[in-house]
Amino acid sequence: MSSTSVPAELRYSKEHEWVRDEDGRATIGITSYAADELGDIVFVELPDVGARLTQFAAFGVVESVKAVSDLFAPLSGEVVEVNEALRTQPELLNQDSYGEGWIARVSIGNPSELDQLLDADAYHELTGQP
């Protein structure tokens, strides 16, 4: 795990969520920068399958030992799948933010919303990492 990794193929929100666009479906999660800032994550409140997300609105909660943070949807759409593994292994968010630590899969409601997200370089700059 590296706190500076920002995979080039993903899109990012200013609220530190990432999106992987997979032909009309998007996988979303939180960045490893966000996971590091929160510390050891102990609980993720996942959305229900079928829930409708609105871009930049809160859709869940992530808790670490000493902090709580809302999860903000990087784009609108309907939740089609959630990462059940996080219910018993929330540490996956710390260990593999962009892989096994994914949070939900969403059917993309409005593809143009992706344009409002940051690319890897812009996100990298946002976090001010060296």
């Binding site: 102990v42 609980f43 808790e63 670490s64 030992v65 000493k66 902090a67 709580v68």
Partner: peptide, 12 residues
Amino acid sequence: LQAREQHIRREK
């Protein structure tokens, strides 16, 4: 499970 509590969650 302190994230339930006021010193972390405050108004929530």
